[in-house]
Structures are given as structure tokens and as C-alpha cells.
């Protein structure tokens, strides 16, 4: 993972440095700066470290990006979300260990800075790179626990009516290809490989018996080490 990060960082540095004087706009007919909305779908792979163990799981989801585009630079407010299934997750909560498997949903938001290079394997596309901080919320709904693998009415009630959420902060980095068109109204495509590193700082135990009005029963700053490395493979279009 460290070698991969060094390779990504070096590649980005070379791309950015060699294009610092380039002034070719992303949309060829673009006369002035403009607002852009993009949407896409992701396939995701996450490796999470919780306490003494790690777990890897896949997911799928959507992403949206709302940006202010100049010729080569863009400031974006983005959201990346995915849903997946997690096995062998372990939490320490209120001095109790909770471990099991269940469904996970994650949503991340962050302000990102993007740079469009003049490099491409094809004149119809431009490489770009994106960097920025990211805040996320992960919700885990366990459907069984390791401590009580056998079904019982109390355990079922606990599993059905409760979920665990944790809030994380981290860094987002991506490399992508964006189609070059005359105008954004031609709905150009983009393909993106993104990486996030996040660390949890706050965990909550939530009662969802009443779906219309959930209740946070308990919450605390995490005293345990929960980190996640996530790779996103995205494809999408410019909506307007």
C-alpha cells in the first residue's frame, strides 16, 4: 500500500509539473468559468482495520460532484457513497466488544481541488488529478454477532432495532480521464480511480425501532484504532 501511494504521488507530481504552463481548457468552447454538475456510479473495495483485526469487503454506490470550473482548475464539493456487506467487524463500545457481520453503508463528503492536464493517450480525453479532505459516516447494521451466533428473540430484537455508526475524517486522492468536448451540454464522460484513507473519531449506538425518528442511545470518542483504506472505480457523466 505504501509503495502504491508513493507511485501515485510521483505520477501526479510529474503530470502537474509538466503541465504547469499549459492553458488548454477542459471544454473547448468554454469562454468563461462555469458551474458543473456530474454524477456517476462506483465499484468499491475497502480494507478496514478495527482493533486487533482487519477485514476486506466490496461495495457499490454512486457519486456526485458539483464544481466551479476554470480553464484547468476546478473546486468541487463531492459526495461518494456505497453499500456493501462486512464480515468479521469488531467494535469496542462501553468497554464491551461487539463483533459480527452485517450490512454497511458509507457516505463521504468533501471539498476537492482538481487539475486537468494536457496529457492523454487520446486527444478526446484529458487526465486529471484530484485531492482534498473528506468526512464520512459509516453505518453498520449487524445481522449476527459472533458472541451470540444462535438465534434468540432478544438477540434478534437487538440486531433488528439497532445500528452502529462511526464518523471518520481523512484524505481523498484520485486520477481520472475526462472526455474533452466543446460544451458541457454534450454530457462528456469521466473515468476515475480514487483512494481514500480515513480514521474514525466518533462512534454512536443508535436505536432505529422508530424509522421515522431514530434515537442515539450512546456515543463516544473512539478509544480504538479504526482506519479504512478504500479504492473507488467510478464512471460517470456531466449532467449540466
Amino acid at each position: 500500500m505504501n509503495k502504491f501511494l508513493i507511485l501515485l504521488t510521483t505520477a501526479t507530481f510529474i503530470l502537474v509539473y509538466s503541465n504547469v504552463l499549459s492553458a488548454r481548457p477542459l471544454f473547448l468552447g468554454m469562454e468563461k468559468e462555469q458551474l458543473v454538475l456530474r454524477g456517476g456510479v462506483n465499484i468499491v473495495g475497502t480494507k478496514a482495520f478495527t482493533g486487533k483485526q482487519s477485514t476486506t469487503f466490496p461495495g457499490a454506490g454512486v457519486n456526485t460532484q458539483f464544481g466551479h470550473l476554470w480553464k484547468k482548475w476546478e473546486v468541487i464539493i463531492s459526495s461518494y457513497a456505497y453499500f456493501g456487506e462486512i464480515k468479521d467487524i469488531e467494535f469496542q463500545f462501553d468497554d464491551q466488544a461487539i463483533s459480527g457481520q452485517g450490512k454497511i453503508s458509507s457516505v463521504s463528503f468533501g471539498p476537492l481541488l482538481r487539475y486537468y492536464t494536457k496529457f492523454s493517450y487520446n486527444p478526446k480525453y484529458s487526465f486529471y488529478t484530484t485531492l482534498g479532505p473528506i468526512w464520512s459516516l459509516e453505518s453498520i447494521k449487524l445481522y449476527n454477532t459472533i458472541d451470540e451466533p444462535k438465534k434468540s428473540s432478544d438477540n434478534d430484537d437487538w440486531l433488528t432495532n439497532h445500528k452502529i455508526t462511526y464518523e471518520s475524517f481523512g484524505l481523498f486522492f484520485s486520477l481520472g480521464l475526462h472526455e474533452r468536448t466543446k460544451r458541457k451540454e454534450e454530457h462528456p464522460l469521466f473515468y476515475e480511480l480514487a483512494y481514500t484513507y480515513q480514521r474514525a473519531h466518533h462512534i454512536s449506538y443508535v436505536d432505529i425501532t422508530n424509522r421515522a425518528k431514530v434515537k442515539v442511545l450512546n456515543h463516544q470518542q473512539t478509544r480504538q484504532f479504526i482506519t479504512g483504506h478504500t479504492i473507488y472505480l467510478s464512471v460517470g457523466i456531466t449532467i449540466f
Partner: peptide
């Protein structure tokens, strides 16, 4: 809420279109 602030207008625009 962060989710409401972002998703109401952005996902709303996508569904609205």
C-alpha cells in the same frame, strides 16, 4: 445535517431533471 444540506439540492436536481 451534512447529508441534508448536500443531498437535498444535488440529488434533488438529478431527480428533478
Amino acid at each position: 445535517s451534512v447529508q441534508d444540506l448536500y443531498q437535498t439540492p444535488i440529488l434533488g436536481a438529478l431527480i428533478g431533471i
